[in-house]
Simulated scan of single mutants.
Amino acid sequence: MTRSKILITGASTGLGAAMARDFAAKGRDLALCARRVDALEALRDELATAHPGVTVAVRGLDVDDHAAVPEAFGELRDELGGLDRVIVNAGIGKGAVIGSGRAAANLATATTNFVSALAQAEAALAIFRAKRAGHLVLVSSMSAVRGLPGKKAAYSASKAGLAALGEALAVELAKSPIAVTTLLPGYIATDMAAKAGDARMVAPLDKGVTAMVRAIEREQTRACVPQWPWRLIDLALPLLPAAVVTRMST
Rank of each mutant, 00 (worst) to 15 (best):
V58F: 02
V63W: 00
Q220S: 14
E122A: 07
A117T: 10
R21N: 02
A31W: 00
P177S: 12
A72Q: 02
K131S: 13
L118P: 03
A117W: 09
N106Q: 07
P70L: 10
R35P: 03
P241R: 14
K207F: 04
A104G: 01
G150E: 13
L136I: 10
V145N: 03
A31P: 03
P70K: 10
E217C: 13
S141P: 06
V88C: 13
G161F: 02
A20K: 01
N106I: 02
V213L: 05
G53H: 06
G74I: 04
A57K: 02
V63N: 00
P204H: 07
N89I: 08
N106A: 03
A130P: 02
A203N: 04
V58E: 03
D22M: 05
T55D: 09
A24T: 11
C224D: 05
R102K: 09
A130T: 12
A236D: 01
I87D: 00
G161Q: 07
R214S: 12
V180R: 08
L169G: 03
D198A: 14
T111S: 12
V137A: 06
R102A: 06
R3P: 06
M19I: 06
A236M: 12
L240G: 07
M142C: 05
T2S: 15
R132S: 14
S156N: 05
I233M: 14
R218Q: 15
D64F: 00
A103N: 01
T9P: 00
L80N: 01
T109H: 05
V202E: 14
D234C: 04
Y187G: 02
N113C: 07
R59G: 00
R102E: 10
D64T: 14
M192F: 05
L118F: 15
V54H: 12
S4G: 11
A160C: 09
S143Y: 04
R129K: 11
G186P: 03
S141N: 07
I6R: 08
T246E: 15
G10D: 05
G60C: 08
A68W: 09
G161C: 05
V115D: 13
A153V: 11
L162S: 00
N113H: 07
L184D: 02
L118N: 08
K26C: 10
A48H: 05
L15K: 03
G161K: 01
D29H: 13
D191L: 10
L165V: 09
S140K: 03
D78R: 09
M212V: 04
T111F: 09
E41R: 09
P177E: 12
G53T: 08
L169R: 01
A110H: 08
A130N: 08
G208Q: 00
G60W: 06
A20Y: 04
T55A: 11
G53I: 04
A103F: 10
H51R: 08
G208T: 03
A17P: 00
D84V: 12
A103C: 01
G16L: 03
G81C: 04
G101C: 13
F114Q: 02
L7Q: 02
L237A: 14
K131L: 05
M201V: 07
M248H: 06
R200Q: 13
K207P: 00
A243I: 12
L107Q: 11
I92P: 01
G161D: 09
R218D: 15
V225K: 01
G53R: 07
D38I: 12
I233S: 06
D234R: 13
A57H: 04
